[in-house]
Design a protein around this nucleic acid. Structure first.
Lengths: 134, 134
DNA sequence: CATAAATACGACTCTAATGGTCTTATATCG
DNA sequence: CGATATAAGACCATTAGAGTCGTATTTATG
């Protein structure tokens, strides 16, 4: 089973929601959680991460919330995954940092198959943006 | 974190190994487990599944083992995943069987983002074959 | 200025899936 | 018969993931 985590799923849902609505509009975590029937706290954490990385801006206090500040076309799936999952939209660790991260990389025939799959997946997720899922 | 299971990883490793060697050659599970330093029992189970589905043939008894009987170019990653993981190389359940599997499919804006990701991933994994990772 | 409505953030629990092991049965070659 | 394979299922242990809770902080507004 190959799966994106719920966090990534919720992140994509939220970003998409913001993307299809008017630019500059503010959405609260609670609001989004209600609309999509998704656990509020979990979604909130995801939104906080996205906010910390400058993907969305957060406004605290009453009438606060979140607002998309990047263009949907600039937000690749790769990037979202990396933000939410922490640097690793990866299938095998070896391929994150290249040769140096694995001592036997050179003649590591083991991970070979995964490497190719990985690279293809990267190409796909790099190209795909929020724009496309609107 | 997006990840293929170890089973799939071992399956790909084994199939690739068979594919790069002479057609018709027999390999034992133990042999493969040693070469790639992978848990024998687990690999064995994967090979058994591949055998049951006609991807490789199994020969029991002394001097037995496994033999690739399909062309590497006919073995897509999708197919391998489906064989090993059981019908679901999927990101969100909704999209396995199409509309009927989800009651609110029509206006289910929730899973929308995943749907597109899913379709793209399917295209990628359908096109990629063992041939390519040799 | 008090209150309510938000975000921020970390600690915690629970569960299910995964990876791995063990045991037993069966087949087959010599 | 015995050695060496596959076949298959039961079993366990660990981990990651999903979700919850509590508390602090910020801020608009009556």
């Amino acid at each position: 089973m190959i799966q994106l985590s719920k966090k990534v799923e919720y992140g994509l849902i939220a970003l998409r929601h913001m993307a299809i609505h008017q630019q500059g509009q503010i959405f609260t975590a609670k609001e989004l959680a209600n609309i999509y029937d998704v656990p509020y706290e979990l979604l909130a954490k995801v939104l906080q991460k996205l906010a910390r990385t400058g993907t969305i801006s957060s406004i605290q206090g009453v009438r606060g919330g979140y607002m998309l500040i990047k263009k949907p076309s600039e937000l690749s799936i790769s990037r979202i995954i990396r933000i939410i999952e922490g640097e690793k939209p990866m299938i095998a660790e070896c391929y994150v940092d290249g040769p140096d991260s694995c001592s036997i990389f050179d003649n590591c025939s083991i991970r070979r198959p995964l490497g190719k799959v990985q690279r293809n997946l990267n190409v796909l997720f790099d190209k795909m943006t929020i724009q496309e899922i609107v």
